[in-house]
Design a protein around this nucleic acid. Structure first.
Lengths: 348, 348
DNA sequence: TGTTAGCACTCAACAGAGGTGAGTGCTAAA
DNA sequence: TTTAGCACTCACCTCTGTTGAGTGCTAACA
C-alpha cells in the first residue's frame, strides 16, 4: 500500500520530511511549491498532501496548519527515500582524527566515543561496552579484602577490567590463592566467559569424583566470581543537547527525557534489542515502547572484535533527526571501534 | 549588625524562612500573623518585615507580593536559627537498614550511598570517592596488552581498583613483569600514593648510582603508572528529582541544571572545597560562583578511613532546601560510610 | 510608645476580545 | 489534470479589564 506512491507523491513526501527535519515546524503547501521546483502550485501540492495524510504518512496538528510527517511517514522516508551516502575519504579521516585512542583504557575509549558521537551529531551519544559475558578471559586475580571476603579482578583479552567482591573460605592462605589463580589462568585462557561457565559446570561435576582439592577450590572460587550478573556499562554523552531540541522544550518533556537518561535500564534494554543485527539499525519513536523515550529515535550499530565480544554504540535524537547525516557517522564509528579493539589484540 | 535582631524579628524571620521552605511561595504578613501565634496583627508583622528587608535578609519579588528570604537571610537562618537535631535511635537504625553494603565493591558502595541520599532527601545525591592520590597501596599488577602497552591494575587498601594503560619497553618479558610487581608489592605496601610518589622520586635518584636493573625498571614502570592525574570518581543520583523543584521549573533552568550535573567538573570543584573541613558543611547559592548552579545549595560531609583516604558525600538541592531534615542525614551517612571503609580493613 | 485598623495603592495572574496571518478544503474554470 | 479563487479555521499575539493578595502609610488606640 505505502509503496503505491507515485513519483510525485514521493518527491513531495521527501520534501516535507526534509523541510520538517530542518525547521521542526509544520510544512505548508506554499513553502513546498516555492522552495522545490516541482512546477506545481500550492493547490496541487495540497491535493497530494491530502492523499498522503489519508495514507497515514502525514498529519496536521490542527486544521489550519501545515503538515508534519507521522512516524509512519518517517519510517517510509527511511526505508524508501533516504539515501545514505558513505563518508568520503576526507570525512573519514576527520572522523578518525576526532578520536584519540592512544593509551586508553576500555572505559576511556567508550566514553570518548560517546563524547565524539554526541559532539558530531549534536544529539546524545550512547555507548554500551561489550557485555561481560561475551568477553574473552585473559587473567584472573584474587586479593583478600577481609577475613571472609575476596576481591576478584578479571581482565579480558581487550583490557577490560572487572572486579567483584566475593565471599570465600577464610582458611585459604595467600599462596593458596596464588596457586588457584595460576591454575585458572592457564586453564581458562582464551575462553569467553560463556565458555568458561560451561567448562566450570562440566568440570565441577567430574571433579566431584577425583577430589583434587586445589582444583575444586579453584573452580568454586571462579564460579562465585564469574557467575552472577554483572551490570552492563552504558555511557551517555551530551544529554543536555537533547534539551535544546524544540520537541523537548516543555518542562514535562525535559523531565521525561532526563529520567530516561538517568535510569540507564531503559536505554540498555533498547540497545540490547539491536545486538543480534548487523550494520546500522534505526528505531523510530514509539517502537521503543518506552513512555519516557516518546518522540525519540535511535540509530545504532554494533561493534565487535574478532573474538566475538559485541558492544553497541549509537545516537539518540528526536524522531525528526537528521538521519542522512548521523547514519554514516554511527556506521563508520562502529567500524573504527571494532578495528581498535582488534588492534589491541593483534599487536599482542 | 545581623545579630542586632531582637527575639521577635528572629521569630518572624524563622517563620518566614520555614514557610517559604515548605511552600516555595512568597510569604505574606497575614499568613505569618495567622499561622503562628505571635499575637501580632499583620500590620505589626509588616513593620518587622520592612526592617528585615532593610537589613537585606528578605526581599519581595514585586511591590505587592509577600517576602522571600534572600541568600543572606538563609545564611542567617542556618547560622543562628536552625537547630539541627540528631537522628534518634530509630531513625539511625532505619538509615542503616537503607544501605546494603554486603559484598560490595567500592564503586557499588558509592553509588548506593548516592541513591539512598537522593531517595531520602528527595534532592540530588552526590558522592565523590576518595581521591586516588589519598588511597593506600595494597597491590599492583601489570598485564601486557600489546607490544608496547601494559595494563596496570592497582588495588587500594579498601579494595578500590584503578587501572591505566601505560607504554613500556617491549622487551620486558612476562616473568620480568612478575618479578617487578612482586618487588613493588613488598616495597610499597602500606604507603599512600602520595608517599609512594615521594619514595619513588627519592629512590630513582639514589638508584641511578647503584644500577640495579630490576629496581630501576620497577620504579620506572610504577612512576609511569602512578604519576599522572587520575580523574575523580563522582556519582550523581536523582538528578531528575531536582527538576521537580518549582525553582527549576522553566526550561532554561532545567537546561542549566542538567548541564551542571552532566559536566561533573563543576561539581567536583565544588566538593573539593569542603575536603579539608570536618563535619557538615553548607554552601549556599551563589557562594558556589557557578552560574549553572545558581539557586542551588549544597550540604556535604567528608568520610574517611583511618588511613586518611578522604571522600565527600552530600546532597544538592534548591537554596530553599529543608536543611533541618537533610543535614542530619548527610552527617550520619558520612559517619556510616567511614565506618564501613574502616571495617573493610579491620576485618583484615 | 508600641500596636493595630483602615485605606489607598500596586501588580501578577487570569480571562476575554479582537486582529493577523499562515494554512487549509472545496469549487469551478482553464 | 491543474490551478486560481474564496471562505474558513485556528494558533498566536496584543490589548483590556478584573480580581485578589499583599503592601506602605497614617491615624487612632491601649
Amino acid at each position: 500500500m505505502a509503496d503505491g506512491l507515485n513519483e510525485r507523491s514521493q518527491n513531495i513526501l521527501e520534501a516535507i520530511v526534509e523541510d520538517y527535519i530542518a525547521s521542526a515546524e509544520p510544512v505548508g503547501s506554499r513553502a513546498i511549491s516555492r522552495k522545490h521546483d516541482f512546477h506545481l502550485s500550492p493547490a496541487s501540492v495540497r491535493n497530494v498532501m491530502a492523499d498522503l495524510e489519508e495514507m497515514g504518512l502525514l498529519c496536521s496538528p490542527h486544521t489550519s496548519s501545515g503538515r508534519i510527517p507521522t512516524e509512519k511517514g518517517f519510517q517510509y522516508y527511511i526505508d524508501t527515500l533516504l539515501d545514505v551516502r558513505d563518508l568520503n575519504r576526507n570525512e573519514k579521516q576527520n572522523l578518525r582524527n576526532s578520536y584519540r585512542f592512544q593509551n586508553m583504557r576500555m572505559e576511556d575509549i567508550m566514553q570518548e566515543v560517546g563524547r565524539v558521537l554526541s559532539g558530531l551529531s549534536q544529539y546524545t551519544g550512547l555507548v554500551m561496552a561489550p557485555k561481560f559475558i561475551s568477553t574473552v578471559f585473559r587473567q584472573i586475580d584474587f586479593i583478600r579484602l577481609s577475613q571472609g571476603q575476596l576481591l576478584m579482578i578479571y581482565v579480558s583479552e581487550t583490557g577490560l577490567v572487572q572486579n567483584k567482591v566475593i565471599e570465600a573460605d577464610p582458611s585459604l592462605t595467600g599462596s593458596d590463592l596464588e596457586r588457584i589463580s595460576n591454575y585458572l589462568n592457564s586453564e581458562l585462557n582464551g575462553l569467553s566467559i560463556q565458555e568458561v561457565r560451561t567448562k566450570l559446570n562440566r568440570e565441577l561435576q567430574e571433579d566431584r569424583i577425583h577430589y583434587d582439592k586445589l582444583k575444586k577450590q579453584a573452580f568454586n572460587l571462579s564460579c562465585a566470581a564469574l557467575q552472577g550478573e554483572i551490570e552492563d556499562q552504558l555511557y551517555v554523552s551530551g544529554a543536555s543537547l537533547m534539551l535544546e531540541q524544540p520537541e523537548f522544550s516543555t518542562p514535562e518533556q525535559m523531565k521525561r527525557l532526563v529520567h530516561a537518561f538517568e535510569s540507564k535500564k531503559i536505554l540498555i534494554e533498547l540497545l540490547d534489542r539491536g545486538q543480534s543485527a548487523r550494520g546500522v539499525q534505526i528505531f523510530i519513536g514509539s517502537e521503543s515502547s518506552q513512555v519516557d523515550l516518546e518522540g525519540c529515535s535511535l540509530i545504532t550499530s554494533n561493534f565487535s572484535n574478532q573474538k566475538g565480544a559485541i558492544g553497541t554504540l549509537g545516537v539518540i535524537g528526536p524522531v525528526r533527526m537528521n538521519y542522512s547525516q548521523v547514519v554514516p557517522i554511527v556506521d563508520f564509528t562502529a567500524q573504527l571501534v571494532s578495528r581498535v579493539l582488534d588492534l589491541e589484540i593483534e599487536k599482542n
